[in-house]
Design a protein around this nucleic acid. Sequence first.
DNA 1: TTGTACGCGTTATCAA
DNA 2: TTGATAACGCGTACAA
Lengths: 339, 339
Amino acid sequence: MSSNVTLKQIAEALGISAMTVSRVINNKKNVDEKTRKKVLEKAKSMGYTPNYLAKSLVSNKSFTIGVVVPEISHSFFPEVIRGIEEVAYQENYQLILTHSAEDAEREKAAIETLRSKRVDGIMISCSQFTSDLSYFEELRSSGLPVVFFDRCMDEAGFSCVGVDDKAAAKKITQHLIDHGYKKIAHLKGAQGLSIGRRRLEGFIEAMSENQLEIADEWIVESGLQEKGGFEAMMKLLDLPEDKRPRAVFAINDPAAFGAIEAIRERGLVIPDDIAIVGFSDDIRAELLPVPLTTVHQPAYEVGKKAAETLLSIINGENESVENIEVLTQMKIRSSCGVH
Amino acid sequence: MSSNVTLKQIAEALGISAMTVSRVINNKKNVDEKTRKKVLEKAKSMGYTPNYLAKSLVSNKSFTIGVVVPEISHSFFPEVIRGIEEVAYQENYQLILTHSAEDAEREKAAIETLRSKRVDGIMISCSQFTSDLSYFEELRSSGLPVVFFDRCMDEAGFSCVGVDDKAAAKKITQHLIDHGYKKIAHLKGAQGLSIGRRRLEGFIEAMSENQLEIADEWIVESGLQEKGGFEAMMKLLDLPEDKRPRAVFAINDPAAFGAIEAIRERGLVIPDDIAIVGFSDDIRAELLPVPLTTVHQPAYEVGKKAAETLLSIINGENESVENIEVLTQMKIRSSCGVH
DNA sequence: TTGTACGCGTTATCAA
DNA sequence: TTGATAACGCGTACAA
């Protein structure tokens, strides 16, 4: 077992008080130079490591931030985490990383654990199935600083850092429209989630402004993963040929990948038979046989901004509940049929 | 600020002792049913959250594991982290994730912070420039459970969980040899790192066993990133044409990607002019214009195994220092000229 | 069944 | 400059 050296032990070994040792370790002024040296040497030789648990217990401050993500593997979240970590590192905070695995209950449990570990704040990107608003209202009343990122619960009363989902969705839909597509479908995400709702809104707004029909059967829920995209696309492909859309805007790239697989399986060609665009600019998007037109999300920036927002709340520099949008960029490739 | 409710506050509100409340919260037997109910209700209404800091201080156990990775973004580490997280989650441990950004000093600092936060164990994947063995010896003498994964310091006396680097390197080199290549170069990694050394060993062994020449100028240090791969490959391409290798085994896929870029820039064709193979099966490998032959590393498995190993040490079920190798799988694609 | 005393490692406060 | 004491929130050990 790892036996840890304490201030008291150093003090005893030196025949002085623990308080003096503490003062030395924390670089306080009022310590005799000789004593200081003696203590530092002893601390080193005994292999002293300060106990932040005890420190935190006293100061009610842990310099730890909790992060809750719904998935870890794909390209977006690791990049966000890197952004968070960078900011945290600069400010001497550490990250407790938890993973909800798209499970709302696991997400709740993770948040409770983080609270128990007395993190100074929490950053949450919701699972696809998160819907219990009352839980977040309770969390809010606890006073713990919380910031959502990417996948937010809008009504929860916490700040949200994401991208300009609605504007970008509208823009990429408009791009399809500008190039002659009229029959456009949307693979949508859960409507409890900010991104699901906002991207759908952007799609609808673009269609409406151009007086295009938004057929009910052309808005299909796919969720955010490949499998859902595949299944949703299959539904569209099962429509009678004259009712079939000529273009598809998928809620995100993984859903688009699934849809592409479905289209390929049916022997149809992208973009000739069906055009498709995604959202997120997954690392694989530009490497596909038919590179995917999509919206680039500056994930690292989202992470940084979210961490900065949380830290400003923790430091009491910021009271307001904000909706912060990092700007995206369209990536026109060939899957939309327009180079 | 978030004012946290304590056992004592609940006790006072109920006119009983904190100890009784503690017993209820921890589901101890000897509590009157009525008291239990009363306490649970009060705890809920007051929004009680147990303070694990205090608990850990007493029990000398934090149920927290420190993880140190050299990079976060690419496909390998997120997948490893997911594996670690999964095991940790099952056993009710949380992860403090730290990032050395390939900086040996930052790595040391991260480990020290983790010790201060009294993690129950640490999992480390070294930076490319880690070389201070004495630091790890000190760490070892502290008795804190430590496991290396993927990038290990062999002499440090800690267990190491990785893949069968040497065997796999030998096998993929042999694959090139079997298909007629004789002039084969290797883009190597830092020799302070297990993977750098082992993959080079595998390469050399395959070449030697086939009595093939290992020219000094054909073993070039590239490091583990794209940029280094590009530069190293450029050196090879600058050799007089008759001294130029016909095939290249890159230490990992990112280095291979850089090398491929260099080859392309010189107007040469893969695999016709130069064949290339990598290591790691990056998510992009199979999507390249000429899909990359490489070695698939089961990253998730490595993470799981490493976490299991660490937990077994923490639980005192395992004393021995082991070298655990998860088996890889060759992915033959077209960059090696053999389908 | 319930309560009291004490200690975990640290620091703020006040006294010497 | 240094030291004694109390407190942070909790649980163990013991007593009532």
